[in-house]
């Protein structure tokens, strides 16, 4: 590397004395530089050591261990007992597990599209130099900042619970008495979906960044050629935004599958009423850390990993067809 980066001599003469001195040193050191390259490999691993220890000790080996445990019965007291694919068979006969899959899929399928459409619409509304953009952007982002906290989940429990804000409003406006959306199995999950959509601020900020990258000239040229607003949106804005839509889509799907805190807090850790908020991760937590069925919980974790991997792979594979990269 040291030898190939040398510049021709006439270029060096144009530079300052200091640069020339460096050049000479570099020349004389070119032999040394080669040995230093050899050392550089060691330096690389040196700097990587903490991460490598983490990768092995906290990710790779635990993954192998959890794969092994998923084929066993293990309660942390007795030794793991090999039961083959027993846990995986059990899943499909476990009504609570099947319920948790249904709840999670409902959550993902409703939250992700609505979340992204709202984020995109508001980003479009804020784009194009609205005055006070930074204030609106801040107001819309604050829920994303707070939303993951226990405090907000507790607030949500009150707002949608019996005698809460929404209950009072429904009584004042429509005369409905004692509406408790948190305690009703038909509605509890939807209060959590509303909580998730309320946090559309972060994908909105990503969309705003994407909109800013679209060259103004494109729109100007299209306008001169007589393209209507809707045509410009579907032919210019939307295609150029597809990388950002793709990014948000992948991130939202992955995080929605792993949602935990709101369901745990709002249902007091039970996933109720009638398992209607029994998120996948909540059931996994109960199985592993309340009932200490570590093998079964590991199997559930691996099914989650495989599901996320398949969905991501599918998205990445189809992305070539609809995601437009300008470079």
């Amino acid at each position: 590397m040291g030898g190939t980066t040398l510049k021709p001599l006439h270029e060096v003469q144009k530079r300052t004395d200091l640069a020339a001195r460096r050049y000479v040193i570099l020349r004389t050191m070119s032999l040394k530089a080669r040995t230093r390259n050899g050392q550089s490999s060691m330096a690389g691993y040196l700097f990587l050591t903490p991460w490598l220890v983490g990768l092995l000790g906290l990710t790779a080996l635990p993954m192998i261990a959890s794969l092994y445990l998923s084929f066993t019965n293990y309660d942390m007291i007795n030794r793991p007992r090999w039961i083959g694919i027993g846990n995986y068979v059990k899943m499909f006969q476990d009504p609570q597990y099947l319920m948790s899959v249904k709840v999670t899929l409902t959550y993902v399928l409703l939250n992700v599209p609505i979340h992204l459409v709202v984020a995109l619409l508001i980003a479009l509304l804020l784009h194009k130099g609205i005055r006070g953009l930074h204030i609106y952007r801040a107001v819309y982002y604050v829920p994303s900042l707070f939303g993951g906290s226990v405090a907000i989940s507790l607030l949500w429990k009150q707002i949608f619970g019996g005698g809460g804000l929404v209950s009072n409003l429904l009584e004042h406006l429509f005369g409905l008495q004692n509406v408790n959306l948190i305690d009703s199995p038909q509605t509890a999950l939807y209060t959590l979906i509303i909580l998730a959509i309320w946090q559309f601020g972060s994908p909105m900020i990503i969309f705003l960044a994407g909109l800013q990258q679209i060259p103004v000239e494109l729109h100007e040229a299209a306008t001169i050629d007589g393209a209507s607003t809707s045509k410009r949106f579907f032919r210019i804005t939307l295609p150029l935004l597809t990388p950002f839509i793709f990014f948000n889509l992948v991130m939202q799907i992955i995080s929605s599958f792993q949602a935990f805190t709101p369901a745990y807090i709002v249902s007091d850790g039970s996933g109720g009423p009638l398992n209607s908020t029994l998120f996948y991760t909540l059931y996994l937590y109960q199985t592993g850390f309340s009932n200490f069925q570590m093998g079964y919980a590991s199997a559930m974790a691996w099914v989650l990993l495989i599901a996320i991997a398949i969905i991501s792979a599918f998205l990445f594979a189809t992305s070539k067809k609809w995601v437009f990269y300008s470079e």
Binding site: A43, L61, M63, S66, Q258, L284, S298, L304
Partner: peptide
């Protein structure tokens, strides 16, 4: 820095970004 497994380990690092932590949490515990 240059080291032999750089490309491979970089790819591994990217994969861990998308890994649900649930597959490691039980053995970690």
């Amino acid at each position: 820095l240059n080291f032999r497994l750089r490309r491979f380990l970089f790819a591994v690092m990217l994969v861990t970004l998308m890994l649900p932590f649930h597959v490691t949490v039980i053995p970690q515990y």
